[in-house]
Write a protein that binds this DNA or RNA. Sequence first.
RNA 1: GCCCUCGUAGCUCAGGGGAUAGAGCACCGGUUUCCUAAACCGGGUGUCGCAGGUUCGAAUCCUGCCGAGGGCGCCA
Length: 617
Amino acid sequence: MWPCAYGRDPARAAFQRKVCRVGRCWQRPVRLPPGGCLLDADIVAALEEQVCRAAAAIGIDPATVEPAVRRSDFADYQADLAMGLAKRLGKPPRDIAAALIATGELDDLCAEVAVAGPGFLNLTLADGALSERLIAAARDDRLGVPNHDPTHRVVVDYSAPNVAKEMHVGHLRSTVIGDAIVRLLDFLGHEVIPQNHVGDWGTPFGMLIEQLIEDGEQATAERLSVGELGSFYQRANERFTSDPDFAERARRRVVALQAGDEETLRRWQLLVDASERYFSRVYDDLEVRLTPEDLAPESRYNPALPQVVRDLESLGLAVESEGALCVYPEGSTGRDDRPLPLIVRKRDGGYGYATTDLAAVRHRTDDLDADWLIYVVGAPQAQHLAMVFQASREAGWLGDDVRVDHTAFGSVLGDNGKMLKTRSGKPIRLADLLDEAVQRARTLIEEKDPDLPADEREQLARAVGIGAVKYADLSSDRLKDYTFAWDRMLSLQGNTAPYLQYAHTRIRSVLRRAGAEEVLPPADVIHVADPAERALALQLLGFGATLDQAAELLQPHRICTYLFDLASTFTTFYEACPVLKAGSAELVASRLTLCALTGRTLAAGLALLGIRAPARM
RNA sequence: GCCCUCGUAGCUCAGGGGAUAGAGCACCGGUUUCCUAAACCGGGUGUCGCAGGUUCGAAUCCUGCCGAGGGCGCCA
């Protein structure tokens, strides 16, 4: 294809700079296997490189052009760079496009390159190039998706429930989105460190511990472990507001807790332990990867807080105001354009969550040595986090080489357009929501497939019900609010988990019939003559690029959109192209390979979202 | 008052500067001697909130306005 001396190749160097343009090499440059040709299934990257090469050949510095290759309605792909070059070169864009074609650089991969419209380059791939890459992907455990290069050490902060407080739909979003991001970045080769920033400290623990004393330790621990957190918290709160004696005891209890009183700490620990047992159960039900090892609760930072404050003072960043110690990060203003404070030490000498968050940043960069911090936290926290990040930058705790993202998400709304609540206006317990999801899935399965053995039905109900809830949460842009609707998310039609799961089982069924379910050596050649075959082939080869984009933008919904398109494209193929009854043995093998690759890609994509792909439904 | 986010088909949503803005639902019609009909195929929908600007080209980038939600000092 082209020489191996990539390091000195100006077109490649320029192309790599191009893909790194986001700033700090967060995007993946094309990886070069030792053999010197691209095994990477990502054909867009290969085409872009050839376009850069063509640009260089007509005397354009490839570092200064955007190859702009994308899927096209008019050909397999299109490159849109000629129009942008017209003014610079003082030539009509169609002439430039023609000159790019004339270099012959695109001939390796393309059977046909044509100028269209104002100067689009319509690229039609050579069948051989498609076939070759499909076979490489089919042979590869990773479906032709290379590791990201360079890889990063990434802290993902997500879920973050509160001790002795019910988990609700807000935690659902953080947990599900965070889990998908963890799985995705892990798959792409990054070293991922999940951090569950559990809320286990603060003033409410005074009343919670007093309530524990009133209810009895044994009984409270038992109730909390099985998820009766909401009623416990509520009772404590009611006592606190209605009984001045209780409130006074609670206030004294906070002081004792902060002072490290042993007996108080023991009771606090009891609340923490019982709650964490419950969280683990919910995580198991949700089928997310979070484990007790990932716990990094707020209290763990307590010992570091005085030092954080001392350092901020000695750096001259923290100043006293109205008795409190404040940092004023650049760029944040509140009412009357006054700078907004981050209160790092309260008037009473205590520390709030800002200080804890600063300590956490420090721990993650210094001790965990992360160079990428991801906070999967609701959108309302945007200003707070921006201030924490800015203060950390100013304090030198976040270097320029560390990327930080607030991966914000919107609210879950009911069908009334308001925040999802029960009819009585209370927040919906996450655990109840999951139970209902499984129950609804079970009912559907009983209707459609009454003969299924009970244990299989239960497994399936879990896979479908939990998958539906998670997929509904992941499939639209996380930043927007989303409307929760059982019927939509459990539908077999549309962009839903059950639809994808069903598409996957249909594929598995074909493979079963072919006796090829376990091992399927790929065909020697993949036929892409039929438009439906070709469309499927092109879609399959876009998997890696989709994952890269989803990871770069931290948008799991891009994976969903891709998988739905893949399933739709497959369906069209499946209708148009007989597989087992194709004309020749060769064609059967080719189409079976397409089926197998599609099935594996669907399963892999769903797995990255934390959703199971059962073999039968 | 200031700041942030959102506004795309009747509904739920895709669309990160490119050609004619796309799906699903809903609605209408069709498909089962045929690889899972829990499915599939066909049928028409738009002042991309409004107005300017940048650009060869804007749903996409910038500014202003309107509408919705959220945030703005010691809760986390």
